[in-house]
């Protein structure tokens, strides 16, 4: 079977500096995968290249064997919380509805069915009572729940999330993880950029360790070892990749 997410020969460079270098990796269907690595390792760039938001120098990305263009309706994206203006004059339910915009199509307005789904997604993340709040009036955890609800109503098969636990309290983090696990249980594939090494084993069953190159990737049990962590996080590890 084709992997859910397949990257081959991917190199991304800004001017003369490589940000991602010769990335090859596969993520199988139905896993909850973590992408971990130090700051500046290219985690966000990897997701952005996958979603066609930055143009790679070489390489290709396939989703279930097909290119992004053919699959983009089956892919959901949760950006970093800091990437939007939380002061924007819009309500919680409005933001969640944005996830449906791709399905609704140009010019058309959300119909009753869209609203039903939006409210359902809000219910799933326990945010229904807050649906009329302006988004600035939420805590960090609540904002992240809204973003997750927005991804849920995209009804995708593959979810990309960029640091969903950043600035979130412990309780919300647990709730979010439970949700991600139930997504996985229903056959979805979830790929999460993550930075807390302590929780990797607890949350994920698949892990990609990245520091501009793929240092290691595979099932957490076999790949997430002390040796690999050291190679990922110590900058001179890049040199130690040298052979012989």
């Amino acid at each position: 079977m084709q992997p859910a997410f397949h990257v081959e020969d991917l190199t991304v460079a800004y001017q003369q500096n490589a940000v991602l270098w010769d990335i090859d990796l596969d993520v199988p269907f139905g896993v909850l995968a973590g992408i971990i690595g130090p700051n500046g390792a290219g985690k966000t760039t990897l997701i952005k290249a996958a979603l066609n938001l930055v143009k790679p120098l070489t390489g290709s990305v396939l989703f279930a064997g097909k290119p992004y263009r053919a699959m983009h309706k089956r892919i959901a994206y949760v950006p970093q919380k800091g990437s939007v203006d939380w002061d924007f004059p819009t309500t919680v339910q409005d933001v969640v509805m944005m996830g449906r915009y791709g399905h609704i199509g140009w010019v058309k307005r959300p119909n009753a069915e869209d609203w039903r789904r939006a409210l359902e997604a809000l219910e799933q993340v326990d945010m229904l009572p807050f649906r009329h709040r302006q988004i600035a009036e939420l805590s960090g955890g609540q904002q992240q729940r809204v973003f997750l609800a927005r991804a849920l109503i995209q009804e995708a098969d593959l979810y990309f999330m960029d640091e969903p636990f950043q600035g979130v309290d412990v309780k919300t983090e647990q709730a979010l993880v439970e949700l991600l696990k139930s997504l996985k249980a229903s056959g979805k594939t979830v790929i999460v950029v993550h930075h807390d090494l302590n929780t990797v084993r607890k949350y994920f069953d698949w892990v990609t360790m990245l520091n501009k190159k793929v240092i290691a990737h595979g099932p957490v049990d076999t790949v997430f070892t002390d040796a690999n962590i050291r190679r990922t996080y110590l900058s001179d590890s890049l040199l130690s990749v040298e052979r012989d």
Partner: peptide, 8 residues
């Protein structure tokens, strides 16, 4: 040399 000086 191709990797760029900021790489490592």
């Amino acid at each position: 040399a191709l990797m760029g000086e900021k790489f490592s």
